[in-house]
């Protein structure tokens, strides 16, 4: 079995470096170089995080649904799609939480409340809860094939319900408050626009970097489940045969009587040493 040092390779290193640079640039532009907004003041800086994170969250969930569909389709059924669904759903939830948190901070400064029952807010919160359930289902273990199948069904069902959720939340909120407050969005231009576009590039890179790594962790987990036991047995066997090979040399020095004790102690030390080596 080849030893994996990690989940990185040339591609992810480039991706990771690109993410770091663009995130740093976005922070530099977003926090220092762009001016505060005439209406919203410093609060406008959240648009360098929030829209990009929201897009990444929806892309993640959409990708999860597409990959699940591909898994359910008999001709394209492959564990790859299942892994992609798992990776993108998890990264999607991370960005969903970032979206809700930054949206909430913006709401506090702009509307005076941490939370309002706006249609989009409610829908995003519902989606977050739905995909947390999906991730919980994935973590329940069991046979990987049947887990992949049931979680693919759940993901497709969850996304199929997005239109219903959309209507429910928008009808509901229009009943409670005549106008959605998102319209207070100011027109942006110049350096603000470029910084916002840069933030989309940065979040896009971070998103793909995370998904690739998460996908490879899935691959390693699968390999561990499939080969882990066999590898462990092979290692123990190798130790035992190494201990047996040690024995004649020692017995030649010590003699037949104490040789048993010597070999057993050498086997013991071998085990102890191996505990460190196998790490």
């Amino acid at each position: 079995m080849t030893v994996h040092k990690g989940t990185a390779n040339q591609l992810t290193r480039v991706l990771g470096a690109g993410s770091l640079v663009t995130v740093a640039l976005t922070a530099l532009f977003g926090l220092w170089l762009t001016p505060p907004d005439a209406v919203q003041g410093q609060l406008v800086r959240l648009i360098y995080v929030h829209p990009a994170a929201a897009t990444a969250c929806y892309v993640g969930f959409g990708l999860c649904a597409l990959a699940s569909l591909a898994y359910l389709w008999p001709r394209t059924r492959s564990r790859r799609w299942d892994r992609l669904a798992a990776a993108s759903a998890e990264v999607g939830v991370v960005f969903c939480v970032i979206t809700l948190a930054t949206g909430s901070i913006w709401g506090r400064g702009s509307w005076g409340v941490w939370w309002t029952w706006d249609a989009r807010l409610t829908l995003t919160a519902l989606l977050c809860a739905v995909f947390l359930g999906y991730l919980a289902l994935r973590r329940t273990g069991g046979n990987p094939e049947s887990r992949a199948l049931t979680s693919a069904i759940v993901a497709v069902v969850c996304v199929a319900l997005v239109p219903i959720d959309h209507y429910a939340t928008s009808w509901w909120t229009t009943l409670h408050q005549g106008d959605t407050l998102m319209r207070a969005n100011p027109l942006i231009h110049g350096s603000q626009l470029y910084t916002m576009l840069l933030s989309f590039v940065a979040v896009g890179l971070v998103f793909s970097w995370l998904v690739v790594h998460r996908y490879r962790v899935e691959v390693l987990e699968d390999r561990f489940e499939e080969e882990g036991f066999a590898v462990a047995i092979a290692e123990r066997r190798a130790e035992a045969s190494a201990a047996v090979q040690d024995r004649p040399a020692e017995s030649a020095v010590v003699g037949p009587g104490p040789a048993v004790a010597a070999s057993s102690s050498s086997a013991g030390s071998e085990m102890g040493r191996d505990g460190e080596v196998s790490e």
């Binding site: 809860a129 947390l132 359930g133 919980a136 329940t140 069991g142 959720d165 939340t169």
Partner: peptide
């Protein structure tokens, strides 16, 4: 069919039936 079904079921069902 899975472990922890008592706690998993509400987590799966409640957000879905919110509408």
């Amino acid at each position: 069919g899975v472990r922890g079904r008592e706690t998993l079921l509400p987590l799966l069902v409640l957000p879905v039936v919110a509408p």
